[in-house]
Amino acid sequence: MEYTVEIENLRKEFKGFTLKDVSLRIPKGYIMGLIGPNGAGKTTIIKLIMNLIRKNSGRILVFGKDHIRYEAEIKSRIGFVYDVPPFYEDLKLKSTASAIAPFYPEWNQQLFLKLMDEFELPLDKKLKKLSHGMKMKFSLCLALSHHADLILMDEPTSGLDPVFRQELLERLSHIMLDEEKTVLFSTHITSDLERIADYITLINNGKILFSKALNDVLENWVVIKAEKDLLEKKDIPGIMGYQKTEYGIEILTSDVKKARTLLPSDSITEKASLEDIMYFTNKGDNNA
């Protein structure tokens, strides 16, 4: 399998937070969802890929090349959408685009104008007059106008209304018809990813808990609801987290087949959603 992004033992230390020797590979032609609670390290990974922050150690390859040594070449093939659109607010949209466009050899002005029209973005309006959602649309419009092979999206749907969220996800699905493109989509709104992602990486407290195909996760991860002392009686395989409730215990396991063979008949198993997984691995009474 060909990988668009390969990260090995990436480490970044901040005061009070460390991204701990992260390794991650994003296959070419797929959407990788990066999930985790706020402050887990999702934005840090994206900023490290873009060389906006310096790594302490580790290696990042994008399109098979070192992301610092071939920085300009690599970035010409990347479209980026950040959670806070980083534009000069007192400029018009057309001015911003005209300053950025010459940097991209593959920039397509016709496509840009078409997208602006489709997104109902006014070229002559200043960015400060736009809502957050419209600024995100503009970011996306710029990212798509130069035929980027890799699109990095950091919380692109946060603060967006459901209509545009839907529109954005549909557009991403459409982009992926071209199997050359790869998307890294970080979010804490897990329902967005359940609809479009091919792979999921869960990060918490600067550490990657897993990186798997979404189907594998949704098929094999379950929440078991059982009596309170289940944990003491049985050695449930693949426990990723649990929480005690008023009525019993809820356990998140990544191995549904083995777990079922060991469970008492009155226990209930439910397929775990990404939100369940994020909750149990982060806020459960004892995350694994």
Binding site: M50, N51, L52, E71, A72, E73, I74, K75, S76, I78, F80, Y82, V84, P86, F87, Y88, E89, I100, F103, Y104
Partner: peptide, 17 residues
Amino acid sequence: REERFKAWTLNCSLPTN
């Protein structure tokens, strides 16, 4: 001005070094 708008993120994300 770059600092005021936090536009260094934009400038440093462009295909350059």
